[in-house]
Design a protein around this nucleic acid. Structure first.
Lengths: 225, 225
DNA sequence: TAAAAAAGTTAGTACATCCTAACTTGCTTT
DNA sequence: AAAGCAAGTTAGGATGTACTAACTTTTTTA
């Protein structure tokens, strides 16, 4: 028997999403990492993670963090699909700015029914990436969520195309937009100051100097998208 | 000083909306009436209503029910505006059926930001009524929420135009749609069976026989809308 | 490898919300 | 006006989620 769906709470959904994203970055979903991402105390995470474990959504080993089960991953990807479809819809149909949709989508994703999400997706022609370049999981739970190099990893002289960037910090997004760094933009690493110093990047024929912190939050693909 | 907005919980918002609707129907928002509308036990209402009283949203007199304060009414109308804009948007931009939007809007109204609602309203050209004919409160908190006669109150031979109907029961809405009874439809009371028996109503040139229960949930204006 | 630091857990508390059961109040009816 | 019933309230308990403080385990460092 497939067990009752047993509607998850908003919070449970957020935990699963957080854990998914940490794992996707290749790290173990440690208590502190989850707590940080959700902006809550580590102590609060212990209990919730245990509860998620009881529901078969994560596998927990005391003192060793949590790992998503297949069931947990399914939920997480569904939430991410919702989030990204919502962001896409808000930007393309309700003229939201790309730096302002994250929080709105974050709230709506818990309230929107699957039917609403699929109608939005259909209205947009079933987009494959969201406005920040993040791939949208398909309804069947598959995603092309390849781990990308960050701008920070480019060697001097190397060219690349911006693939995506984190959507969580509006100020960063506004800054990047000003520099012309958006998904699809072509760029070239011109210079790297030593000791993790600032990078000089050519975007089209304009050069910008950006810090390592910024560069590490911009992901690139090679040449073509 | 205008006092901190102090984000209300979903539940508080629902209570206020329920109280508003009961008062609009000309009744006192008694504990049991609120409980019934929200589908919870009366005992649960007592506590919450006291809390709302403490926040200055309702005035409570023990054993005498609650009454909205101006502040409470403002919140309630804002929720109703959200709800009705959402319903309108879902029907007209995402091809939802008019009988299926209530629940979706009910969930989204707690998550949607004022900015989103206003963008939707703008996209729709600032509609004044929702798909069920209910007037949409304006951003400034005013509404034309006149108490209407129900179809049940029509005298034999009288003509009227359908103004609105309850949006809470999808089955009722589907039934009404089948009969051609929608906001804007013109009708005439042809016959009333005695002892609260069924009513015969002409919609265009078709006659339908409907029960009193149905008729009392359809509201009419006179002649023109 | 032992001490220190970092990470994680438990214990105890709080709050919002709901429930049921038992009691109280107020309205209605005789 | 007293009794009975309906409506409302309180008491006590459950759940989900968070917090801080104190303790434990693991990892790092010296």
């Amino acid at each position: 028997m497939a067990s009752a769906p047993a509607a998850l709470t908003r919070q449970a959904e957020d935990y699963l999403k957080a854990i998914y994203e940490i794992e996707r970055d290749g790290e173990v979903a440690a208590t502190t990492a989850i707590a940080e991402r959700l902006g809550i105390a580590p102590a609060s995470v212990s209990g919730m993670v245990r509860r998620l474990g009881g529901q078969g959504l994560v596998k927990v080993e005391r003192y060793q963090g949590a790992r998503l089960t297949a069931k947990g991953r399914r939920v997480a990807l569904q939430m991410i699909r919702r989030h990204r479809i919502l962001e896409s819809y808000l930007v393309s149909r309700l003229s939201f700015e790309w730096d302002g949709v994250h929080d709105e989508a974050e709230r709506l994703e818990h309230a929107a029914s699957p039917a609403l999400i699929e109608r939005m997706a259909a209205a947009l022609g079933h987009p494959e990436v969201d406005p920040h370049g993040a791939p949208i999981p398909r309804p069947d739970g598959t995603v092309d969520d390849a781990r990308l190099r960050s701008l920070n990893d480019l060697a001097v002289g190397e060219r690349a195309t911006v693939a995506r960037m984190s959507d969580r910090d509006p100020a960063l997004l506004r800054y990047l937009a000003e520099l012309g760094i958006r998904p699809g933009a072509d760029l070239r690493m011109v210079d790297r100051a030593p000791f993790d110093g600032p990078l000089t990047v050519a975007v089209g024929r304009v050069r910008h100097v950006v810090g390592v912190g910024v560069a590490s939050r911009v992901y690139v693909g090679d040449g073509r998208r």
